[in-house]
């Protein structure tokens, strides 16, 4: 019986031979043009297949491409940083200022902070780099905290604090009110009975009227039901994130509903992202079959 190492080696050579033969055939028959574009497609296809070889197991082809990827990215990022930050923000304003303008001397301050940051390689004077770190932490906190308040609190409140009943239609009003009442009923039941019983079927039964009315609202075109859902979702998820209160009683019921909301949103997000990943896979397979092999 062939040992695993030999089998892997054989598979590796078979794959390399197959790729070489396929490329020779494609160039010989003119399906790949003998220019830089053709060579680029050949390399891209080889790299894609090498990365997919990881699906079998970690192997030398995958390792080679992994290192190539990391190395190319490092080189690329360095050039991007040079042109967009170091040259554009430091060298140019200091050494090549626009005609008629004096050099932007104030840019020496960030340069000094950058140099101080590099002092950390020294064991003796490495402590000086903390000045730069203090600046970076303070500066970033100053930027992050107001932005956080703006996006997570102010905007959330703005879109949540809106009228619950938008329509004067009696049917819509009745459905919305009944839905709200069924949620209140569930919380009350959960608070008083279910949390002590801890029976999943009892929980589901208590949720049934709310779920039925929600479906009625969604499929019956009651748009105002969304506003109630948003209100419930925001309040209950906030309750879930209470840390200094034990999740029992009313807080426990609220946080349980909050978890339901979180899980539903995660499920939707999961499905959405998986679809996006599938489209990436389809694009890669299309590249291999169309651009490289020319089969489709």
């Amino acid at each position: 019986m062939m040992d695993a190492h030999k089998k892997d080696l054989l598979l590796f050579f078979a794959l390399v031979l197959l790729l070489t033969a396929a490329n020779v055939f494609l160039f010989a028959t003119g399906r790949l043009s003998a220019d830089w574009e053709g060579i680029g497609i050949m390399f891209a296809a080889g790299i894609s297949i090498s990365l997919y070889s990881f699906l079998y197991k970690d192997n030398v082809l995958f390792k080679a491409v992994e290192h190539l990827y990391v190395g190319v990215a490092a080189g690329y990022v360095l050039s991007v940083y040079w042109y967009t930050i170091f040259f554009a923000d430091l060298v140019e304003p200091l050494i090549f200022p626009p005609p008629g303008e004096s050099p932007a001397w104030y840019r020496l301050a960030p340069l000094a902070l950058g140099i101080i940051l590099l002092l950390r390689v020294s064991r003796r004077i490495g402590w000086i780099s903390r000045i730069s770190f203090a600046f970076i932490m303070g500066f970033y906190s100053g930027i992050a905290i107001p932005n956080y308040i703006q996006t997570m609190i102010v905007q959330q409140l703005q879109y949540t604090v809106t009228p619950l009943f938008r329509h004067t239609d009696t049917y819509e009003f009745v459905v919305q009110t009944a839905f709200l009442a069924s949620v209140v009923l569930y919380v009350t039941l959960d608070w008083l009975l279910l949390s002590s019983l801890k029976r999943p079927w009892a929980n589901a039964l208590a949720l049934l009227p709310a779920a039925a009315l929600l479906m009625l609202g969604i499929f019956g075109g009651v748009s105002g039901i969304n506003q109630i859902m948003v209100l419930l979702g925001v309040v209950c998820v906030l309750v879930y994130f209470f840390f200094s209160v034990e999740h029992k009683g009313l807080v426990g019921s609220g946080s349980r509903i909050g978890i339901y909301f979180l899980m539903v949103s995660f499920g939707a997000s999961f499905g959405y992202t998986i679809m996006a990943r599938m489209s990436l896979l389809i694009e890669r397979i299309e590249f291999l079959l169309h651009d490289w092999l020319g089969i489709i």
Binding site: Q158, V161, P163, L164, L238, F241, F242
Partner: peptide, 30 residues
């Protein structure tokens, strides 16, 4: 932070009730 969350919940509930009743100042200040 927990107390702040509690205040936010109170603000939302009072704001929604007022807004439904046609009083919009709480919506506007946020």
């Amino acid at each position: 932070q927990d107390l702040m969350k509690g205040l936010i919940i109170v603000f939302i509930i009072v704001g929604v009730i007022l807004s439904t009743a046609g009083v919009d100042w709480m919506t506007h200040i946020m």
